[in-house]
Amino acid sequence: MSIREELKSALVHLGSDPRSFEDLALEIYRYQFHQNPVYQAYASSLNKTPDQVKRLEKIPFLPISFFKSHPISTGFSEPQVIFESSGTTSSTTSRHLVKDLALYEVLSRKTFETIYSPLSDYHIFALLPSYLERNNSSLVYMVENFIYNSFSKFGGFFLNNTEEMVDRMLAADHRKILLIGVSFALLDLVENTALVKKLEPIRDRLIVMETGGMKGRRKELIREELHEILTQGFGIKTIHSEYGMTELLSQGYSKGEGVFELPPYMKVLLREVNDPFTYLPHFAIGQKSGPHKQRTGGINVIDLANIDSCSFIETQDLGVFTEDYKGFKVVGRFDNSDIRGCNLLLSS
């Protein structure tokens, strides 16, 4: 068995495998250091070679902008697909070279079903017009896989035909109804009050999940303001959220109030805003000692599913941990970062 296949097996079985998250992360770091020229050059420039890195917090995180300027690839096999970010019409987009679509499908389904329940419990309706206008969106690929594995004849993708979508929701049987949509499209929908009123009979089994993003179609809103508008518009108690991006193959999910849960192969660290190489106290989710002080930090993501690209990404998002350190919130972005499709303004 190759090193990659051994690491992949450990990744899929993380939790039942004797290796801890830190052990596996360090193994993947060493593998990517030796097999990814871009990551090796960056890590070496920081003197973060395998001889120097013995703990999780010492692993170097690649700035997310490298996905725009360089091909980020571990190993020498060709990608099966290249996912590309939405960005804006004037911006350079990120490109993620994905070499194992089957792994992406398995882990994305596993993540959703661990945090929620089996996909067969849902009718899934996707309102992702800006993503459907492209043919290389990781989100569209994931949701398409979800719809297929839900075995529902009612769900599907909808561009601007929201009346047909609502009619099919009303015709759907007793399962829960998951409406996953980009923010501006969900706002457009709730402004059609007569159409949304028709959802009254199914409101108790309706889950609305926003993926963020105005895509230049509307004014950016902070997440709390967006959720307030959507909860009132749909007449439901909470809005769910998905935290994902082109550069990551794993996702986090929030069941309300913007608090994200993560799968076992994903972890968030918060770095000091003015020092990217220093972490806020108790950097590991789940480790707590002493009183909690809610501090904002830059979000670093460890995504072990990125085994063929780079598992250690320094994002431009800002976040805070919850009091028990088991979840986190996204509260904005660094001022000088690029406008991204999933942008949310900094909460005051």
Results as ranks from 00 to 15, higher is better:
residue 213 G to Q: 05
residue 117 S to N: 10
residue 343 N to D: 14
residue 47 N to A: 13
residue 219 K to P: 00
residue 259 V to F: 06
residue 38 V to M: 03
residue 347 S to R: 09
residue 144 E to K: 01
residue 284 A to C: 05
residue 190 V to L: 05
residue 162 T to L: 08
residue 289 S to P: 06
residue 329 K to W: 08
residue 335 D to Q: 03
residue 167 D to E: 15
residue 22 E to N: 09
residue 48 K to T: 05
residue 181 G to I: 08
residue 157 F to W: 04
residue 193 T to R: 10
residue 251 Q to K: 13
residue 178 L to S: 02
residue 73 S to A: 11
residue 339 I to D: 08
residue 194 A to Q: 10
residue 199 L to T: 05
residue 283 F to P: 13
residue 274 N to Y: 14
residue 314 E to M: 12
residue 25 A to P: 12
residue 272 E to R: 15
residue 67 F to K: 02
residue 137 S to P: 00
residue 84 E to Q: 12
residue 250 S to I: 06
residue 135 N to W: 00
residue 141 Y to S: 04
residue 62 L to D: 06
residue 343 N to S: 14
residue 237 K to W: 00
residue 198 K to W: 10
residue 248 L to G: 01
residue 306 N to R: 01
residue 122 Y to K: 10
residue 103 L to E: 07
residue 102 A to L: 11
residue 190 V to R: 03
residue 188 D to P: 00
residue 280 L to T: 05
residue 109 R to F: 08
residue 172 A to C: 06
residue 43 A to P: 01
residue 79 P to E: 05
residue 32 Q to F: 14
residue 147 I to H: 02
residue 10 A to S: 15
residue 269 L to G: 06
residue 12 V to E: 06
residue 4 R to S: 09
residue 110 K to E: 13
residue 3 I to C: 09
residue 38 V to D: 04
residue 291 P to D: 15
residue 222 I to M: 09
residue 95 R to N: 09
residue 106 V to H: 09
residue 21 F to H: 14
residue 257 E to Q: 13
residue 202 I to R: 08
residue 192 N to R: 11
residue 159 L to R: 07
residue 147 I to P: 02
residue 193 T to Q: 07
residue 87 G to E: 07
residue 97 L to D: 00
residue 16 S to D: 12
residue 201 P to E: 07
residue 26 L to C: 09
residue 32 Q to G: 13
residue 137 S to C: 00
residue 322 T to A: 14
residue 155 G to M: 03
residue 342 C to D: 04
residue 62 L to Q: 04
residue 257 E to F: 13
residue 46 L to M: 07
residue 122 Y to M: 12
residue 245 M to S: 07
residue 235 G to Y: 06
residue 84 E to D: 02
residue 241 S to F: 05
residue 216 G to R: 01
residue 336 N to E: 11
residue 319 G to R: 14
residue 225 E to G: 09
residue 60 P to H: 08
residue 198 K to Y: 10
residue 71 P to I: 10
residue 125 F to C: 11
residue 285 I to Y: 00
residue 176 K to L: 11
residue 191 E to M: 04
residue 221 L to G: 03
residue 138 S to W: 01
residue 151 F to P: 00
residue 185 A to D: 01
residue 9 S to G: 03
residue 235 G to A: 06
residue 125 F to S: 11
residue 73 S to I: 14
residue 246 T to W: 04
residue 231 T to N: 11
residue 206 L to A: 02
residue 346 L to Y: 15
residue 319 G to M: 14
residue 241 S to H: 11
residue 129 P to R: 08
residue 229 I to Y: 02
residue 263 P to I: 13
residue 309 S to I: 02
residue 317 D to L: 08
residue 90 S to F: 12
residue 109 R to S: 12
residue 328 F to W: 04
residue 228 E to P: 03
residue 89 T to M: 12
residue 178 L to R: 03
residue 329 K to L: 11
residue 314 E to F: 11
residue 156 G to T: 02
residue 180 I to V: 13
residue 174 H to T: 12
residue 204 D to I: 06
residue 112 F to M: 07
residue 258 G to A: 08
residue 197 K to P: 00
residue 112 F to K: 03
residue 344 L to F: 12
residue 199 L to E: 07
residue 312 F to R: 01
residue 2 S to I: 07
residue 315 T to H: 11
residue 227 H to W: 05
residue 163 E to Q: 08
residue 140 V to R: 02
residue 4 R to I: 13
residue 44 S to D: 05
residue 79 P to D: 02
residue 295 R to I: 10
residue 228 E to C: 10
residue 14 L to V: 08
residue 80 Q to K: 08
residue 48 K to C: 11
residue 122 Y to G: 11
residue 180 I to S: 05
residue 121 D to M: 13
residue 76 F to Q: 15
